[in-house]
Simulated assay, not measured.
Amino acid sequence: MSTILLVDDDVDSLWLLQIILVGRGYHVLLAEGGEAALAKAAQCLPDLIVTDCDMPGMDGIALCERLKFYPALAQIPVVMASGRMPPEEKSTLWNVFLSKPVDLSALELAINSLLAKRLSGPQTRVNVPAPAGSRWQPIPSRLCL
Rank of each mutant, 00 (worst) to 15 (best):
V22F: 07
P77E: 09
A41L: 02
L14R: 00
R66C: 02
A62R: 07
V78Q: 03
I19F: 10
Q137I: 12
T51P: 04
L29S: 01
A37Q: 04
G23L: 06
W136H: 11
M55G: 03
L67C: 02
E32C: 05
L104E: 12
P122I: 15
E89D: 11
R135F: 13
D59V: 03
R125Q: 12
L48K: 03
V28Y: 01
A72I: 11
L143F: 13
V79D: 06
R118A: 14
L30S: 01
I4H: 05
P77I: 10
D9M: 03
P131C: 04
E89K: 08
I61H: 04
K68P: 03
A37C: 05
L45Y: 12
A72V: 09
P129T: 09
M1A: 10
L30Y: 09
E89Q: 13
A36E: 13
F97A: 00
I61P: 00
D54R: 03
A39N: 09
D12H: 10
A41M: 07
T3F: 11
K100E: 09
S13G: 06
M55N: 04
M55D: 04
R125W: 00
A39E: 15
L119W: 14
P87D: 15
S13F: 09
E108W: 00
L98I: 06
G25C: 06
E65G: 07
I19Y: 13
P138D: 12
A31I: 02
N127C: 12
V11W: 12
D12Y: 14
C64V: 02
M85I: 09
V96W: 10
P71L: 09
N127K: 11
S2M: 02
S141D: 13
L114K: 04
S99H: 15
G25H: 03
G23F: 12
P87I: 12
R84E: 14
L114G: 00
L145H: 14
V78G: 00
V96P: 01
A116W: 15
N127P: 15
Q43F: 07
D52W: 00
P71G: 08
A74C: 09
V96G: 03
L14N: 07
S120F: 13
D8S: 07
K40S: 08
W15E: 15
L143Q: 09
A31L: 01
A81K: 01
P122Q: 15
G133S: 14
I4Q: 02
A110G: 00
G83R: 06
R125K: 10
E35S: 05
R142K: 11
R84D: 13
M58S: 02
Q18D: 04
A41C: 02
N127F: 12
V102Q: 06
D10P: 02
L114R: 00
T92F: 13
L6C: 05
G60D: 04
L114N: 05
L143D: 10
T124V: 15
F97G: 05
V50G: 05
A42P: 02
V79C: 01
